[in-house]
Amino acid sequence: MPDVSITGEGVGKSYGTTTALKGLDFSVNKGEIFGFIGPDGAGKTTLFRILTTLLLPGSGKVSVEGYDVVKDYRILRRILGYMPGKFSLYHDLSVEENLRFFAGIFGVDVHENYHLVKDIYSQIEPFAKRRAGKLSGGMKQKLALSCALIHKPVVLVLDEPTTGVDAVSRREFWEMLLRLKSGGITIVVSTPYMDEAMRCDRVALMQQGSIMTTGTPQEIIAAFPRKIYRIKGSGILDILRLTRNMKYIRSAELFGDAVHISTENTDQAPTAGEISQYLSAQGLSGHTIKEVVAGIEDCFIDRMKQQPDKHE
């Protein structure tokens, strides 16, 4: 059994009549990167605010490193690093002033702890005198991460750190997280972007306040229960319309310039050849179809469709 860093049991939270979290159970191991993957409104931010002692759970229990988030919040705040989704540093303070401020709050010395953030902070150090509000998205993100790390947290909680950041900065950010992980820190991260799930050790797929499934990305993909075909060709809207009318087709969705079709788990489900024949018979020739391995997005979509209380 791996050592556990965070456990949640029946964690619920409501705002008035809106239920944000519907009794979540989860556990995060020490030293892993654990991702909560889900769209806006899934409850990720509410959960993270509970984990970081900024919000009381409505029901259930959460402990981090053996400390209760309600009772032991003072201790927890010393050992947690938190990077909120919204840029929350002081816009009017310079880069170095922000770092000094956060070090000061935690009663640590910037120079003593500089080695903790050196990798990341050195990239923005040339702009040390610039006001934080004037930084680019990628640089803001690096500063926020530096400020969350300067007091040497045991657990790092990152709420959508890559939203609105370009592909190059995103890549660099994940490389930084992997280096931090090798230093032994436990990292909990949320993202609406499915491709980032693949970079986590384990993930929980979230939707509308519930966890749909938890596991390594590989486990989740391996558990995908049906076949997926990828169809490419001109007249993509016609392909969608026609295949949705076929029997034993569970879903037909756009994936880039192709259509992904998943079939029901039955012997009567059409094969690639049969789908292709059908399309040709309807006057759509020149398309290609092949079976593909499910990606994490296919898994997410499939599980969303199992949810009975969808509003859209």
């Binding site: 769209p39 806006d40 939203t163 809207l237 969705e253 979509i301």
Partner: peptide, 24 residues
């Protein structure tokens, strides 16, 4: 201008389907 941040993958696909229809 960066229209699709933060929505679930099903909605995102429905959104792109609307875009394809508009283009058609």
């Amino acid at each position: 201008d960066e229209p699709t941040g933060g929505v679930d993958p099903v909605t995102r696909r429905q959104f792109w389907e609307m875009i394809y229809e508009a283009a058609a």
